[in-house]
Design a protein around this nucleic acid. Sequence first.
DNA 1: TGATCTTGCAGAAACGTACCTGTCAACGGG
DNA 2: CCCGTTGACAGGTACGTTTCTGCAAGATCA
Lengths: 342, 342
Amino acid sequence: MAAAAGVSITTVSDALNGKGRLPDATRRHVREVADRLGYRPSAAARTLRTGKSGLIGLTVTTYGDEPFTFTEFAYFAEMARAATSAALARGYALVILPATSRHDVWSNVALDGTVVIDPSDHDPVVSELVRQGLPVVSDGRPAGSLPVTAWVDNDHEAAVLGILDHLADAGARRIGLLTGTSTDTYTHLSTTAYLHWCERVGQDPVYEAYPAHDPCAGAVAADRLLARPDRPDAVYGLFDPNGTDLLAAARRYGLRVPDDLLLVCCSESTVYASTEPPITTLSLKPRRIGTAVVQLLIDAIEGVESEQPVEQVIPTELIVRTSSERRAARRTVSPPRSPEEG
Amino acid sequence: MAAAAGVSITTVSDALNGKGRLPDATRRHVREVADRLGYRPSAAARTLRTGKSGLIGLTVTTYGDEPFTFTEFAYFAEMARAATSAALARGYALVILPATSRHDVWSNVALDGTVVIDPSDHDPVVSELVRQGLPVVSDGRPAGSLPVTAWVDNDHEAAVLGILDHLADAGARRIGLLTGTSTDTYTHLSTTAYLHWCERVGQDPVYEAYPAHDPCAGAVAADRLLARPDRPDAVYGLFDPNGTDLLAAARRYGLRVPDDLLLVCCSESTVYASTEPPITTLSLKPRRIGTAVVQLLIDAIEGVESEQPVEQVIPTELIVRTSSERRAARRTVSPPRSPEEG
DNA sequence: TGATCTTGCAGAAACGTACCTGTCAACGGG
DNA sequence: CCCGTTGACAGGTACGTTTCTGCAAGATCA
């Protein structure tokens, strides 16, 4: 390449990178020759020299050996999409990596930093990365004293309390919860918020927990919840498929939604706009989270490293649909007033 | 590192890579020191030296500036998941890259090969990659004379014909199609197959086409299809959200599914198992496709380069549910036989 | 007793870039 | 006329590997 243009290697580098003191004529000449030859500078050599690869790792903690969990497809897809866009806009690319601590693949790729979705406490991957001096930003408040560079999360407590209030406003007398058995912060914070709310308003907690990574267990748990003697008249489901599962279970028990049962679930899926009836959902705004996570990470890579972790809370959005619409007061103040109600 | 272990650089490299003629004692010693120091060989230097990065590009041709299209979320998520797994199992990692021909990011990452999902004819990205001598494997039969190394696809024609026959068997007299306006091979092949089938059985085609990347246009198109004077009594929808949209439209027009309207759509989503009624779906088996694509690519990277493109066809699966269940024959051979039918 | 072969390692070249440090000419000011 | 300055480049080194070659020291053998 340098020979073809009749200049030195230095001049080529300077011309292509816009550095050095070169007249425009030389710059143009070099670039023209490079174009003609289809010359592309070696990314590996540049990385070796500069120490920057332009690559960001993206990791999801998983239950099996699959790189994503099953329940949160829409969330992950949206989040990853936004993260990819944001990274590309700043000249970085995303590398999908497993959360396992097997170093095989990890050490084979030069990363400038890593995004970790929903890390578990004392995640060995995170510790290793931090030890290497790489910035790590997590989607989800880090459990324990995980030493991440920054994190982004929703205010899950506020979100749950808001939903419970919303359901109570719509006439719910006993609100049930469909939750998970795993120990991640999302499940933990949401369940705790539910219990606190119950205590505050004096309602007995009515909830079923199931392993969220099992695609079949959700339907069973939904059925169990509605089969209970103390059947709730409103349910909030923490996971994406809970809406359809609860709707199907309600149908089996002859419960009308929202008349006999109010329904809300946490989901990013658009199908809940077209179900019968449409179901109220809580959106965690994965696009905003994905974008924020990447921005924080690239800031840490390029800018000054701040001492304490940067924390960023993204508001949630409750998309109210028919399934949680205020129903006529029954068995409350007014006594049964017509046979049609029977 | 070499100094810390009291050996030469060569010995370190040989010990860690299991090469050279070293006694086990030396090997163990070097590895132990490496572990103690937390030493990781530089991926950039290795890539520069060996010419192999262990990175595979993953590209989706898109309509906007987002890295994925909106309609096929579940398909892409599943496909990407399987591809990631397969790549990791063979020691490779996936890099998500934009389908734009802006070289910024592309030339900043050293790739061993690339997977292209649904490439358009004369895709500039593919041409550029092939010119660089990189193997390219596409998900989706390449349009035109795109010079890919290998490709994987379903037999879309056979799939559509199978569905139409299935619907006809279930009693459909006039089958409609919900299709897209874009020119990708999936849409094109499926629509053509539908038109051929109509010609063969002597039915007038009844279809609506809409821009599949627009999340709202689908619902409108579904409505339009059922509002036609020559309203079909069965519909196949080519895209994921068509099921819920058609179901909602049917409800608006007071059509019972499957009694008045048979429904099938192409989707990987599990929600269709829990809708009312459950909807028959065609699965393109994205997991198998993702795995196959990556295997072919890595074979091409590591093995001998075969001259002609390797083609692999993955069978589809029709998951039959209530929405396309055989209905009682009406207005067919047997005359109306009882008032209950009216 | 050499001559040849194996074992166990070290030296050194290359991979392609970025950047620091010259070098050489032209030029203007004193 | 000399000297400092500036413009326009080239040289050379370092990044951290892999790998080819080299080279002793011991083993084997005629």
